[in-house]
């Protein structure tokens, strides 16, 4: 059982095999993401009841929280893949880590912008320099720093290693984001979802909320896999199968 699992994992670490077996994963996660997000956001916008204190502005939660969750989860994934790349010298981990950066950065930006828009009617201001907002801004800057490091290096392998180290150092920011609403006095409301408590949300809001989170994760999975496939083609242009694949992609267009 364990050996079968290890063998399955090892298949995924070979760029060529990854390229082949990731294709159906992209297809099915895209289909599921579109279906789930369509239901979740329609439900959230049209059918979920109005919130007692915040009125209709709370409907921003259906994109704000999923994008904030994802921006942190993707960062953690980049750091773990960087560690895997540094320790076990698995090239594919570096490729995937690099291509996750734009996705994570766009999610951090989305969380910040929707938070600012939500802040205006709720707090009366677009922005405050409090712990939660500032640590999320630091997360966005970490993403931009990772991307800049990749582009600054002459050799891509150096960029991989430098970005992996920065990603690992930056992990310290994740608990700061998570506990910022507990450790400091902040305008930002505390976490809505806690593992130890029942959510303080009516079921008719909770279901589309959880669905939106799942939908965003599935979309990010599809984007991450397809970007990693492109990174393989870009990094290994001399492999025969890569040249054949590019021939085929070029002639299909």
């Amino acid at each position: 059982m364990w050996q079968a699992l290890v063998r399955w994992f090892h298949r995924w670490t070979s760029p060529k095999i990854f390229y082949q077996i990731s294709r159906p994963w992209i297809f099915w996660s895209s289909v599921a993401a579109i279906a789930i997000l369509a239901v979740a956001l329609t439900w959230g916008l049209v059918f979920a009841p109005v919130e007692r204190l915040q009125g209709n502005s709370y409907r921003i939660i259906f994109i704000h929280v999923p994008s904030a969750f994802l921006s942190q989860a993707i960062y953690l994934a980049i750091a773990i893949m960087g560690l895997v790349g540094l320790v076990w010298r698995i090239k594919l981990a570096f490729y995937a880590a690099k291509q996750c950066i734009p996705i994570g950065a766009s999610m951090a930006l989305l969380a910040l912008v929707t938070g600012a828009i939500w802040g205006k009617p709720t707090w009366g201001t677009w922005w405050v320099w409090d712990a939660r907002l500032t640590s999320m801004l630091v997360l966005l800057f970490l993403y931009l720093g990772l991307w800049a490091l990749h582009n600054a290096m002459e050799r891509q392998e150096t960029g991989d290693r430098a970005a992996a180290i920065l990603a690992l150092v930056g992990v310290v920011n994740l608990p700061i984001i998570k506990f910022s609403v507990v450790w400091w006095n902040t305008l930002h409301q505390p976490a809505t979802l806690k593992l130890t408590q029942a959510p303080p949300m009516h079921i008719s809001m909770l279901i589309p909320f959880l669905m939106a989170i799942v939908g965003f994760y599935l979309a990010a999975l599809a984007w991450g896999l397809s970007r990693t496939r492109l990174e393989i083609l870009q990094r290994e242009p001399n492999a025969r199968w890569v040249r054949e694949e590019l021939d085929q992609l070029g002639s299909a267009r």
Partner: peptide, 18 residues
């Protein structure tokens, strides 16, 4: 949306752009 339309729709527009 009881006066909150601008905030909600702006948020969803940014999400669409992303």
């Amino acid at each position: 949306m009881d006066g909150h339309g601008i905030y909600v729709w702006l948020s969803y527009a940014v999400a669409t752009a992303v």
